[in-house]
Amino acid sequence: MSTQTNTGTPTRHEANRSLRSPADRYRARMESTSSATLQARLIASELENLAEVFERLSADGSVRRAAALTVAARRRFVVGAGKSHAYANLLASDLSTAVAQVSLVDDSSVSTLDLLSDVRETDVLIAFSFRRYRRSTVEVAREFHAAGGKVVAVTDDATAPIARHADEVVEVATDSESYADSPTAVAAAIHLLSTLTTASAKGARRRFADRDRISAALGLYLDETGDPR
């Protein structure tokens, strides 16, 4: 993880971690700041953080290993709470186009009780957990791992609470100049994971062809119906 500079000045990552809540970050970054200045700072920060995350993921191989676990699984479950639910939804949507047995864990589809009542050794759980770390996600990962399933944790810190229950940790920093932690690198990591999983998945080509055929038959998309509206 990031360390202090030789002068003792906190690094960008440490400074970001010290502002624990959105209210803290708002007061530190956004009060008495012009929109032009804020935009410039935000764009520069997003570019820097994304480059650092890509460099780390390329070097540590965690996304490749996570993709291998996902491909090898018989059933794939994806979970996240709060803002992380959106990340989980995005990954589940992308994965389900290429591989079978992908389930988003929430009370409207697969509940946590249903999930934890039937964990198999061939199952994998991909869990999104970012500060301030929702208790429910960590507890689900803990119970899933204890039951013999594989856990892939996508989180912002290698020492995050969920890491101790994970077979693989994909570390994605979320440093930003906003009141909200950045989703940019998280979305990029999701894109990497779904793409690498799809590239290794047997039957992906047939599944894509079947989905194209069925969506055309059902007229799901305007660009497939010729409807000018």
Score class of each variant (00 low, 15 high):
Ala209Glu: 15
Leu91Asn: 00
Glu177Asp: 13
Ser136Ile: 15
Ser109Asp: 09
Ser178Lys: 01
Asn49Phe: 08
Ala216Glu: 11
Arg205Gly: 12
Thr155Trp: 09
Val99Ala: 00
Val152Phe: 08
Ala59His: 13
Thr159Arg: 07
Ala100Ile: 05
Asn89Tyr: 10
Ala199Gly: 07
Leu50Ala: 13
Ala67Pro: 12
Pro22Val: 00
Ile126Met: 03
Asp94Ile: 01
Ser178Gly: 04
Ala199Trp: 03
Arg76Ser: 00
His165Tyr: 14
Arg120Val: 13
Arg205Thr: 15
Ala36Val: 14
Ala163Glu: 07
Asp175Met: 02
Ala163His: 10
Thr195Ala: 07
Ser176Met: 04
Glu139Ala: 11
Thr37His: 05
Thr70His: 00
Glu14Arg: 02
Arg132Lys: 13
Thr3Tyr: 07
Thr122Glu: 11
His191Ala: 10
Ala15Cys: 06
Asp94His: 02
Ile162Gln: 04
Asp118Ile: 06
Thr225Tyr: 03
Val169Ser: 08
Glu55Ile: 06
Pro228Thr: 09
Ala204Gln: 04
Thr159Leu: 05
Arg12Thr: 13
Val169Gln: 08
Leu42Glu: 13
Val63Met: 02
Pro10His: 01
Ser215Met: 03
Thr37Leu: 02
Met30Phe: 11
Asp106His: 08
Ser32Asp: 14
Ala40Ile: 10
Arg207Trp: 07
Thr198Val: 03
Thr11Val: 02
Leu69Cys: 11
Phe208Tyr: 14
Ala81Gly: 06
Ala98Trp: 03
Ala81Trp: 07
Arg41Glu: 15
Ser136Asn: 14
Ala92Leu: 00
Asp181Phe: 08
Asp210Pro: 09
Ala88Met: 02
Val169Gly: 09
Glu52Trp: 09
Arg25Met: 02
Val186His: 06
Ala187Gly: 12
Arg64Phe: 08
Ala188Pro: 12
His13Gly: 03
Phe128Trp: 05
Val172Glu: 08
Val124Ile: 07
Val138Arg: 03
Thr225Pro: 07
Ala153His: 11
Ala204Arg: 04
His191Asn: 08
Tyr26Leu: 07
Pro22Asp: 00
Glu14Gly: 04
Tyr221His: 12
Ser194Tyr: 06
Tyr179His: 10
Ala147Lys: 10
Ala98Val: 07
Leu222Val: 15
Ala86Leu: 07
Asp156Gln: 04
Glu121Gln: 11
Ser93Ala: 08
His145Asp: 12
Ser117His: 07
Leu90Glu: 09
Phe208Gly: 05
Pro183Arg: 00
Ser21Gln: 05
Lys202His: 13
Tyr87Met: 02
Arg120Asp: 14
Phe77Leu: 01
Leu104Val: 03
Asn49Arg: 02
Ser103Trp: 01
Val53Ile: 10
Gln101Pro: 05
Tyr133Thr: 14
Ala166Ser: 12
Ala23Met: 05
Lys202Arg: 09
Ala73Cys: 05
Asp156Gly: 12
Glu31Pro: 08
Glu177Thr: 08
Glu139Trp: 11
Leu220Tyr: 11
Ala92Tyr: 00
Asp181Ser: 13
Glu14Leu: 06
Thr11Gly: 10
Gly203Pro: 08
Ala73Gly: 09
Ser58Tyr: 11
Ala51Lys: 05
Ser32Gly: 10
Leu38Ile: 10
Arg29Ala: 05
Asp60Arg: 02
